[in-house]
Every structure is written in C-alpha cells, then in structure tokens.
Lab assay of single mutants.
Amino acid sequence: GKMTGIVKWFNADKGFGFITPDDGSKDVFVHFSAIQNDGYKSLDEGQKVSFTIESGAKGPAAGNVTSL
C-alpha cells in the first residue's frame, strides 16, 4: 500500500536519492523515473512524499512517488 515519508536527499544530476519512511523502516532508494509529475522529475530534501515499495533489481525501491 501507500506509505509516506520525507526525502532524505536527492541528487538531481544523477537522478536518484533516498526517502526516509514515516514508519521508521529502512531508507528507500528512489529513482527519478518513479516520480509522478509532468514536469521536471526531481525531489527536494525534506519534502514530504507518498510512495509504494516496488522490488527492483537492486532491492526495494520507491514507486508512484507523489509530493504531498
């Protein structure tokens, strides 16, 4: 299901970062391709987001990332 969290950091040049889930679980990798907006796909440190957990090739990653 949907989770919420805070963006820990995001490197716009490399197109990835990490989200710290509100439930205290392990930080989740986020790739820019998972960001659900029409414009420039980037996130800001400290931004609140909702997301799902998808299993990627390198382990769990955030999917369906939407800013709240």
Rank of each mutant, 00 (worst) to 15 (best):
I6F: 12
Q47I: 09
G15Y: 03
I53A: 05
N64D: 11
P21E: 02
G24C: 06
S50V: 09
F32A: 10
N37Q: 15
S50Q: 11
K58V: 09
T52A: 05
G56Q: 12
A62V: 03
G1A: 10
K26P: 14
T4K: 08
Q36M: 14
V7E: 00
K41F: 09
V28S: 02
E54R: 05
K58T: 13
K58E: 09
K2C: 06
E45N: 14
T52Y: 10
S33Q: 07
G63K: 09
F32C: 06
F16P: 00
A12G: 11
S67W: 11
G15K: 05
G17F: 01
N37R: 10
N11L: 08
I35S: 03
G5T: 00
G39N: 11
K14I: 10
F16D: 01
D23N: 12
A57V: 13
G24Y: 06
K14P: 02
D27F: 04
N37K: 14
S33N: 08
P60F: 13
S25R: 09
D22G: 05
K2V: 15
I19L: 08
F51N: 00
G1S: 09
G17T: 01
E54A: 09
S42P: 06
S25K: 09
I19F: 02
G24S: 07
K58Q: 13
D23M: 06
T4R: 05
A34W: 03
I6P: 01
D44Y: 15
G15L: 03
G17E: 00
V65T: 02
V30W: 02
P21M: 06
K48L: 10
I35Y: 05
A34H: 06
F32S: 09
V49W: 01
A57R: 14
G17R: 00
L43W: 05
F10E: 00
P21Q: 04
N64H: 10
E45S: 14
S33C: 05
K14T: 05
G46F: 06
F32E: 07
D13S: 14
G1Q: 08
T20S: 13
D27L: 08
S25Y: 07
A62Y: 01
K48E: 07
G63W: 11
D22I: 08
V30S: 01
L68K: 06
G63H: 12
Q47T: 13
G63F: 12
G24L: 07
A61F: 15
I35Q: 03
P21C: 05
G17V: 02
V28M: 06
K14L: 12
V30D: 00
T66N: 10
F16I: 11
A12Q: 13
D38Q: 11
S55N: 15
N64R: 04
V65Y: 00
K26T: 14
Q36F: 09
P60S: 08
V49R: 00
G15F: 03
G59N: 07
K2F: 15
F10A: 02
A34E: 07
F10L: 02
D22H: 09
F51K: 00
E54W: 10
S50N: 07
G63D: 08
D22R: 05
M3E: 06
S50W: 10
G46E: 04
G15H: 04
P21K: 03
S25I: 07
A34K: 09
S50H: 08
G39R: 09
V7Y: 01
L43Y: 03
K41R: 13
T66V: 15
N11P: 02
D22S: 10
H31C: 04
T52E: 10
G56H: 13
F18L: 04
I53D: 02
K41L: 09
T66M: 11
A12P: 11
E45L: 13
P60G: 06
F29Y: 10
V49M: 02
G39T: 10
N11T: 05
S25M: 09
G46S: 05
A57P: 14
T52W: 08
E54N: 08
K14N: 05
V65P: 01
Q47E: 13
G5V: 00
F16S: 03
F32N: 05
K48T: 09
G63L: 12
K48C: 07
F18M: 07
G59C: 04
D13G: 13
T4P: 03
Y40D: 12
A62E: 01
S55W: 12
T66G: 05
D44S: 15
H31Y: 06
H31L: 05
P21D: 02
Q36V: 14
A62Q: 01
G39I: 09
H31D: 03
E45K: 15
H31A: 04
S42H: 15
N64F: 10
P21H: 03
K14R: 13
V49N: 00
D22P: 03
K8L: 07
S50R: 04
E45G: 12
G24I: 04
N37W: 11
E45H: 14
F32V: 11
I53N: 04
E45A: 14
T52V: 12
H31R: 04
K8W: 03
G63N: 12
V28Q: 02
F32G: 05
F51H: 01
K2R: 07
G15S: 03
G17H: 00
G63I: 12
D22T: 09
D13C: 12
T52L: 08
L68G: 06
K48F: 09
S33G: 07
M3V: 12
F18N: 02
L68M: 12
D13V: 14
Q36E: 12
P21W: 04
V7S: 01
Y40H: 13
E54D: 12
F29E: 02
E45Y: 14
K26W: 09
S50E: 13
G46I: 02
A61K: 14
I35W: 07
K14Q: 10
T20E: 08
D23H: 08
S33H: 08
G24W: 07
S42W: 14
G56L: 07
W9H: 04
G24H: 09
D27N: 09
A61L: 13
G17S: 01
P60Y: 11
L43E: 01
D13I: 15
T52F: 10
D23L: 07
A12H: 15
S67H: 13
A57Q: 14
F32Q: 09
I53Q: 05
D27H: 05
Q47G: 07
I35K: 02
V30N: 00
F16E: 03
A57M: 14
T20R: 12
T66W: 07
D38K: 12
S50M: 12
I19A: 01
M3H: 11
F29K: 02
W9R: 04
N11K: 11
A34I: 04
D13W: 15
F32I: 11
I6M: 11
I53F: 08
S33W: 07
Q36S: 12
D44M: 14
S55M: 15
V65D: 01
I6R: 13
A57H: 15
Q36I: 14
K8Y: 04
Q36N: 12
L43G: 01
K2G: 11
F16R: 02
N37V: 15
Q47R: 07
D22V: 08
G56V: 07
S25D: 09
D38V: 09
S33P: 03
G15D: 01
W9E: 02
S55P: 12
F29I: 03
G59A: 06
I53H: 05
I19H: 00
D27S: 07
V28K: 03
K41C: 07
S67V: 15
P60A: 10
V28P: 01
